[in-house]
């Protein structure tokens, strides 16, 4: 007997109704929009918390270099846990349980590695002579951090935020599995009901969101360094 993949059979059966625009129109306000808003919420809150943790951590471990390897090791360990497994572990923790909070915690955990690493890399990229000149002119340690080091590190940090954002928007779809809401809800519901329109809508919107966030942050990254745009020197 000829082997036919299950997915192929599924699609063949469903072919006439792969994309039902009528459904999208009718359920836009009730299902699609809330799922999109929920997804933005999940990703946005996770990134905000991850940044609030990673920036100070990055600044600290850039200074106390001995702490850097263990911190990266821990963050890397978190990063390697498969997302579904991490969700499963988190829902069993008392006080977290099922719902968006478990998803947010997992997404934060996934973002920390790249954010800490890029913060440190950004600070490392600041020319030592620039810091020496700043000290020599009488800037305080705090002024050097906020007026020299962080502004110069910012493009590298934002590059990290871009990677974290795209990752988080992708993984957040799986969060619907533990009732986290978001666009994953459309996808899981579509699978349950064998209704590809929902799957495609959820997937397409999640992709569009990731691309939009990535492009937006890329533009921000360029804006943050007008000095590089006009570089080139002369004579």
């Amino acid at each position: 007997m000829e082997f036919v993949p299950a997915g192929f059979v599924l699609l063949q059966q469903l072919e006439p109704r792969i994309m039902d625009w009528g459904w999208v129109r009718e359920n836009f306000a009730e299902d699609v929009l809330p799922a999109l808003v929920g997804h933005v919420y999940l990703s946005g809150v996770s990134l905000a918390i991850a940044l609030a943790i990673s920036l100070p951590t990055g600044v600290l471990v850039a200074r106390y270099r001995k702490a850097y390897p263990p911190v990266v090791f821990l963050a890397g360990l978190l990063f390697t846990i498969p997302s579904l497994a991490l969700f499963a572990i988190l829902v069993t923790v008392p006080g977290i349980g099922i719902g968006p909070n478990a998803v947010i915690i997992a997404l934060v955990a996934y973002s920390i590695l790249v954010l800490v690493r890029n913060t440190v890399a950004g600070l490392d990229s600041v020319p030592p002579e620039t810091i020496d000149a700043a000290r020599g002119m009488g800037l305080t340690a705090r002024q050097i951090l906020f007026k020299v080091e962080l502004p110069l590190a910012l493009p590298v940090i934002v590059a990290g935020v871009r990677i974290a954002t795209v990752t988080v928007i992708g993984i957040a779809t799986i969060g619907a599995y533990i009732a986290g809401g978001g666009l994953g809800q459309l996808i899981f519901d579509g699978i349950d009901r064998l209704f590809p329109t929902m799957i495609i809508t959820g997937a397409a919107l999640a992709t569009a969101l990731a691309v939009a966030a990535d492009v937006g942050l890329l533009l921000l990254e360029r804006r943050l360094r007008p000095w590089a745009r006009r570089a080139g020197g002369q004579g």
């Binding site: 620039t130 020496d132 000149a133 700043a134 009488g138 110069l152 360094r225 000095w227």
Partner: peptide
Amino acid sequence: SATELRRKIGYAIQQIGLFPHR
């Protein structure tokens, strides 16, 4: 204080150390 002292003393180095973002 060291910072107060340094603001009263001009400082120029070989690598210049201009602030690239300013």
